[in-house]
């Protein structure tokens, strides 16, 4: 059977239309909006690069940018280490292992708002389980994990890592199960310890999975929003806010669409640069079974 020149285009037209109208179109519109003052209900006014000038002169923006980078770094490292640890833990043939796999995955599918509320209760300085147990054990001057600007971001990262580690566990598990068993058997015959097997077999052969997870985790970290909204609303005084949260606030609370669009483009550039570096560096550290 032969297809004419038109048939392939007919098949990909819906995808192209979707891409143009729902992805590329809004991106171009947002880029243009970033050069305007636009509060949604009035026509946008062209103001050139004023939004970008205001952004880079804003102390709050730089603080939030720093928060974002700190958050991303800790989140990416956290979910990768925890995800890998859990994956190694559940990568065996114990009888109840599927139960444990499900258990570790449970936070991923649990409602974000529920997680936010429950963790807020656990950590609440006055009624929370954790501060009260610590106080009963004789620990004094327990900090307010969510109310103190020094700890709020760190606490949020921990909760995000707790929620998403199960997701990355599944990805790592898939990678682990692709590593041929013979390699470990050969290493064992050669007298390799468990650590040496992990260091010289597992980690190198997982590098393509690690690379993929790194990109996914980075994108997730830059989109962090829901738990932040449920637990701290970015506070105290933006101490736990990240760029995606701040973009939402400016767009849909203050109705500063132009300013928020400028912010989202800064975020886009950051994601682009980090992803490019990651792809460039890939050839130096990613190995495959072949």
């Amino acid at each position: 059977m032969r297809y004419g020149k038109v048939a392939p285009w007919l098949f990909i037209t819906p995808t192209i239309l979707g891409l143009v109208f729902f992805r590329i179109g809004p991106i171009i519109a947002a880029f243009l909006a970033s050069f305007t003052s636009w509060n949604v209900f009035s026509p946008p006014q062209w103001i050139g690069t004023s939004n970008y000038v205001e952004l880079f002169n804003s102390g709050t923006f730089w603080m939030i940018l720093r928060n974002t980078l700190v958050f991303s770094l800790m989140y990416v490292m956290g979910v990768m280490v925890c995800g890998l640890f859990l994956a190694i833990l559940v990568n065996n043939r114990l009888r109840a292992i599927t139960f444990f796999r499900g258990l570790y995955y449970l936070p991923v599918i649990t409602s974000t708002v529920a997680i936010g509320v429950v963790w807020s209760w656990i950590l609440s300085p006055r009624f929370g389980v954790l501060p009260n147990v610590l106080a009963d054990l004789g620990v004094h001057n327990i900090p307010s994990f969510l109310g103190d600007s020094r700890y709020a971001l760190l606490t949020l990262v921990m909760v995000y890592i707790w929620k998403m580690s199960g997701y990355h566990m599944i990805l790592f598990l898939a990678g682990l199960q692709n590593i041929p068993e013979e390699y470990y058997e050969a290493a064992k015959i050669d007298g390799a310890t468990r650590w040496q097997s992990l260091r010289h077999i597992t980690l190198p052969l997982l590098s393509s999975t690690t690379f993929f997870i790194g990109i996914i985790a980075l994108i997730q970290s830059l989109q962090s929003f829901d738990i932040t909204m449920a637990m701290t609303e970015g506070g105290p005084n933006y101490a736990s806010a990240t760029l995606s949260f701040f973009t939402y606030i400016n767009a849909f609370v203050h109705f500063r669409m132009g300013y928020a669009s400028a912010m989202s483009f800064v975020l886009l550039i950051i994601v682009g640069v980090i992803t490019f570096i990651n792809f460039y560096a890939r050839k130096y550290w990613v190995e495959t079974v072949d």
């Binding site: 600007s149 609303e233 506070g235 105290p236 005084n237 933006y238 606030i249 609370v253 203050h254």
Partner: peptide, 15 residues
Amino acid sequence: YASTGGAGMNGELDA
């Protein structure tokens, strides 16, 4: 106010 209740004058006085 509202979703930004931890910011602005609110946030400064909370501090």
